[in-house]
Design a protein around this nucleic acid. Structure first.
Lengths: 200, 200
DNA sequence: TAAATCATTTAACAGTGTTAAGCAAATGTA
DNA sequence: TACATTTGCTTAACACTGTTAAATGATTTA
């Protein structure tokens, strides 16, 4: 009886190992270099065994992204909890978003890269309460004193925020035109600018 | 003697055909589906012939991107020429940028997609006068009454502009959270906001 | 007409994701 | 203990990828 548990635990472990190996390869050699056989090598198995844990390579990428969204949500929540006023919360959250992107470059590329079009579908499959979207719009609606989280105005403001931060992030991920500090300042200016513009 | 010319002309033509076929495949089936054999099929040759015209698949992608940058620059210049004041020029140019992105979705993805890291290196290999960068910073420096196009302040403002527009574009390319009109309005607001903030 | 060059194709290599078949060890059953 | 069954894992294979070398057949040159 208990051996069943042990086996299940082992299975869960190799599943985690697969994901871990995949992410390690991506960090070392980039998304392009990720292959099933390389993953298998890293966990000291042969390739077909992976299909016992994931239906396809795509499924592995999807799961990595899912974990990325959860991780991002967790860090946003952490940043939010550190502050009381919605304005401070928003600033802290978008800075946390920025930090997440650079601390997890490859993950972020997978999650929000233009070519990986799964981002949208993926986001919708996550547990609602833990979505980055909800955590942030909460503060926006509080700041604007609008109850309905799904209202058009909240949605628009959220997208404005997201666009600016994501734009800065992605341009820095591919070009790094300015120094870190300058870009951080641009980010800060943009964020406080929007916050001011939506503060009643 | 003249036959040499004819042959050269034919060669130039098939080179263009290769690029054309590649872009058509990408538009029909996405970047992921692009393969040498498919290109060869479309131009009614076999795959190895492509290597007479391009060193590798990567080289084809690079050339497609190059053409994309030139096309974008041309449209920016066109938009610029339609207006006199630098403020109007900037608004028109960023709207043209936005329109280019959606009229050439796949091309834009290739040019500025996070995962395709060639964007930065590519841009630097283009004839200077025709770079998007130069066309836009010209108007910024005129508006701010600063001579030096390479000065830090101009550079920063350019990146601020670019980040916001690119952010809006790329999020709309993967999510389309709002309607077209709303996003266009967000874009307009953002652009006029920055223009106002840098107008002396 | 013979030689040389050119354009193009076929065949092949190493790699990819994925599936099916096989094997060998562990487990369940009598 | 002996047999049957399931499990874990590997080998072999398929269709595809980018790319290269060799072979072929047509065209130009001498």
């Amino acid at each position: 009886m208990a051996s069943k548990d042990r086996i299940l635990r082992l299975k869960e472990e190799t599943r985690a190992n697969i994901l871990d190996a995949a992410l390690r390869i991506v960090k070392e050699e980039g998304w392009q270099a990720l292959s099933m056989r390389k993953i298998a090598d890293k966990i000291e198995y042969t390739a077909p065994i992976i299909y016992e844990y994931f239906a396809s390579k795509e499924a592995i990428l999807l799961e990595l992204n899912r974990q990325g969204y959860l991780k991002l949500a967790k860090e946003l929540q952490l940043a939010k909890d550190d502050h009381n006023s919605p304005a401070e919360q928003l600033e802290a959250m978008w800075l946390a978003y920025w930090n997440f992107a650079f601390a997890n470059k490859e993950l972020y590329q997978g999650m929000f890269g233009i070519t990986t079009s799964c981002a949208c579908e993926m986001v919708n499959k996550l547990p609602e309460a833990e979505l980055p979207w909800d955590i942030i719009t909460g503060s926006i609606s509080e700041l604007m004193k609008i109850e309905d989280l799904e209202s058009e105005i909240i949605c628009t403001k959220y997208y404005t925020f997201w666009s600016i931060v994501h734009g800065l992030v992605s341009i820095n991920l591919l070009d790094r035109g300015n120094s870190d500090e300058i870009n951080r300042q641009v980010l800060r200016d943009a964020i406080t600018g929007i916050i001011r513009s939506i503060t009643p």
